[in-house]
Amino acid sequence: MPRPVIRIENLSKYYRLGAIGSHTLREDVNRWAARLRGRPDPMPRTGAAEPETREGGGIWALKNLDLEVGAGEILGIIGPNGAGKSTLLKVLSRITAPTEGRVTMRGRVGSLLEVGTGFHPELTGRENIYLNGAILGMKTREVDRKLEAIVAFAETSQVLDTPVKRYSSGMTLRLAFAVAAHLEPEILIFDEVLAVGDRAFQDKCLDKIQDLARSGRTVLFVTHNMGPALDLCSRGIVLAAGQCAYDGTMNDAVRHYQGCAVGGRRQTR
């Protein structure tokens, strides 16, 4: 196995159910007041019988996940809804902290969980390239250098100084993907972003991803679309209930996943 660039050790992420988002100051004040007077909680938390033990009232989106990814690998992550795929990418992208465990990553991480995050409709394509590049971690000087390549890749040179709100969704997508593809991070993380865009552009993106991997970069992506993207992957894992249910070649992973899905359906009948 090549030199590991991502090491995930015993990673778990817990989400509480019910109580999330139901907080208002009044409820908490009432709760404190009741506790002071020794009365039972007037507004019991939904589903959280034992909030201390972290059981019953929530979901382990990831549970004791261990994984190592080597440099230059293209890892495809598949699995049913709620298996923890997006949560895994969110933890790796440092959007939310894990509940337990540890991740170590070597090199710059570029993550594209959504296409065009931070694009402002009133700003022009050019302004948005700079802004989006900076959000993804690029310096202005870096964008200066890559501007031509980005615009050429996105095929949007004619509308570069038009506000993005006038763009078609395909144009916005191309521009956004172009920025992210030129970030040149050592680790690139995608979530389902190729689902949009026409076939020709999808192929272009896949070529770009292949190029990135050949130059020693590591690519992780989540997909539901069992299409051409899968042919790229040098390795595939199946996530189920927050754990790695299968780890091997992409073809075997797909077979395993489809086998499980069929098996699951049979059981419910």
Binding site: R7, P98, V103, T104, R106
Partner: peptide
Amino acid sequence: FYELLPGREHVTVIEPR
């Protein structure tokens, strides 16, 4: 894991706390 590469390379460690 942390074996040094040429140039500056940064290592990201993600932990619960």
